[in-house]
Design a protein around this nucleic acid. Structure first.
Length: 574
RNA sequence: GCGCCCGUAGCUCAGUUGGAUAGAGCAAUUGAUUUCUAAUCAAUUGGCCGGAGGUUCGAAUCCUCUCGGGCGCACCA
């Protein structure tokens, strides 16, 4: 539908509107000399949803905060302001009260608020889309596992959360969101991995060799070696040890990358860019970065190595860029990588790193500062560790020792929807104990099914409505629906929640907090289930049925939009 | 020793800017189905927000100290 007029207001818009009215009221009070203050100290008017209904739908405590600056009693400020507010006759508000030490409580006019349902119907999958980050672009780098083994459960966490975050950022208005996977295919680990594969390859061909002491033990290494044997036979047997490690390592890691891609795709996560660390070396980007750093006076030589003065930005010691033997450090290469990303024109770089990398944040930001890049345009989120709990015990996992559960195993065992939901619902900061038995055992009472069930129930209602005498909603001009009929408490709660959706998107995107989304959807589903129990949608009262169908249809849209943001399916029947 | 993250109900965790009586799910107990899907709803039980000070009208939230758990502190990646 194009050129749709907006009918109602979302909660976010209402808050902005009210903030403006409060501010205007304060200024009028100042004009009337009822309150004296400098315009510069005008407070930011923030609203919250009181827990207790008797305090209204929205409340602000600005007067209490403002009282400190003006030395006027907070209650008095509120009482002066409320007079002007009442004179303003704000359409969306039915009642305003001063309460407690100076809270200003607003009660919404639900006849007005309900009009938002028309907007939800009109905008549909675009409901919740914002233009907050209009014109901005962001690069989100996540997972980025070394190509030396299958993806593990921490990678699964990063994949689920990173992908959801990207969808949220897109919805919040970024013009470009690039999902990027950095392949560490040039380091020491690759070398060790190559030696491991070469060793297994020779063993597979019946050669008696000693497996490297620090090699990768996992069974998958043997599988890959066997694959190479089957594909190339003894072609590489005559090569030198070094060549074998290099060539077979490359073959093996390419294969692993392909497997990672397909496992991620199977999980529903696809990357726009697979960036190979090697390309930084081949086109001199590391050297260029080093040269650039050298011009910045924050680089010095000591003990035959080249150092970056990260201490001037708060690091506890300076860091080496070029080793005594002339090799570049991982740190320098990583700086070059980030410079490369910035050069591609992104306003913001977002990295999701593992917990063992938190010490690198200050270093990387130091490097950016040294190069004159605003360090706040690099955002690093740390995905805390995941413990897999099996029969009450924490499973110790090590890729080197080949003892770990892969992302694929977890997804096969528990299901992609549940895995995604479990990971997204936790704050990234939180350490996470993932109890496999619990996830499987309680899968029927899982929150994800709770939400999906609400969706399925709505689909069922809509199916039934088409068979009844009640006219199909889409066949009617929805603006003819009599919204006043939606007056039950459950209906109002549902409408309020639906109207809050865009604000949730905004906050989740601004604070990079995707875990607020599943919480919102659980609350929404809960309100819907209660509504379902209390209010019959399909009845002989055609007008009421139509109004409730509109409400239910809007709920369906919001649940769908929400689950889509998490990459979780929306079954129409359960 | 220094730094980062965590500590909230029996378990797993929310708590956005300091707000009004600390929340949800699971587990436990009880009730609800001639009615659009009971994978649901309603109700009950469950808390010194790790501890101690401080800041203020007001603290789970901010500051200081402290105790537990995890992870870093390489010329490894």
């Amino acid at each position: 539908m194009t050129m749709t007029e907006k009918n109602g207001l979302t909660i976010f818009e209402i808050k902005n509107l009210l903030a403006k009215f409060v501010e205007d009221s304060l200024l009028k009070a100042k004009e009337n000399k009822e309150i004296e203050f400098n315009v510069g100290i005008l407070p930011k008017i923030l609203f919250e949803q009181p827990k207790d209904k008797k305090f209204g739908d929205l409340a602000t405590n600005f007067a209490i905060d403002f009282a400190r600056k003006t030395k006027i009693a907070s209650r008095k400020i509120a009482e002066i302001v409320i007079v002007f507010l009442k004179e303003s006759n704000i359409k969306i508000i039915s009642k305003i009260e001063v309460a407690g030490p100076g809270f200003l409580n607003f009660f919404l006019n639900y006849t007005e608020l309900t009009k938002v349902l028309l907007d939800i119907e009109n905008t549909h999958e675009n409901y919740g889309c914002l233009d907050y980050f209009a014109g901005k672009s962001i690069n989100v780098e996540f997972v980025s596992a070394n190509p030396v083994g299958p993806l593990n459960i921490v990678n699964a966490r990063a994949a689920a959360v990173g992908d959801c975050l990207c969808r949220l950022l897109t919805k919040a208005g970024y013009i470009q969101v690039v999902r990027e996977y950095y392949i560490n295919d040039a380091g020491n680990q690759i070398k060790i991995f190559g030696e491991s594969v070469a060793s297994r390859y020779k063993q597979a061909l019946g050669v008696d060799v000693v497996f490297p002491e620090n090699g990768y033990q996992g069974e998958y290494v043997k599988d890959i070696a066997n694959w190479i044997k089957e594909t190339y036979n003894d072609k590489y047997l005559s090569f030198s040890q070094e060549e074998q490690a290099s060539i077979l390592g490359k073959l093996a890691s390419l294969r692993i990358i392909e497997e990672q891609k397909s496992e991620l795709k199977n999980f529903g996560v696809e990357f726009d860019v697979w960036f190979s660390e090697k390309t930084l070396h081949t086109v001199n980007k590391v050297k260029d970065t080093l040269d650039l750093l050298k011009t910045k006076e924050c680089v010095y030589e000591k003990d035959n190595a080249i150092w970056l003065k990260t201490t001037q930005f708060g690091d506890d010691k300076d860091r080496v860029l070029v080793k005594e033997n002339g090799d570049w450090t991982y740190f320098l290469v990583d700086i070059a990588y980030h410079i490369d990303k910035f050069k591609r024109g992104f306003n913001t770089l977002l990295d999701i790193w593992g917990p063992d990398h938190h010490g690198h944040i200050i270093r990387m930001k130091s490097a950016m500062s040294s190069l004159g890049i605003d360090p706040s345009s690099l955002v690093v989120l740390i995905a805390q560790q995941v413990n897999l709990i099996h029969e009450g015990e924490v499973l110790a996992m090590s890729k080197r020792a080949g003892k770990f559960i892969t992302m694929k195993e977890l997804v096969d065992e528990v299901g992609a929807d549940v895995v995604k939901y479990f990971f997204i619902m936790k704050s990234l900061d939180a350490h996470f104990d993932f109890d496999i038995e619990l996830a499987k055992k309680h899968s029927d009472e899982n929150p994800v099914y709770y939400i999906q069930y609400a969706f399925a129930r709505i689909c069922s209602i809509l199916r039934n409505s088409k068979e009844s005498v009640v006219a199909d909603l889409s066949a009617k001009n929805i603006s003819e629906v009599n919204l006043v009929l939606l007056k039950e408490e459950e209906e109002h709660e549902l409408i309020f929640k639906l109207a809050s959706f865009p604000e949730l998107i905004l906050n989740s995107a601004i604070f990079y907090a995707p875990h607020w989304l599943p919480k919102y959807l659980e609350e929404l589903a809960s309100i819907f289930h209660r509504f379902y129990t209390e209010c019959k949608v399909l009845s002989d009262d055609k007008d009421l049925t139509l109004a409730r169908l509109l409400l239910v249809s809007s709920t369906k849209t919001v649940i769908k939009n929400g689950l889509d943001l998490m990459g979780i399916s929306t079954p129409e029947k359960m």
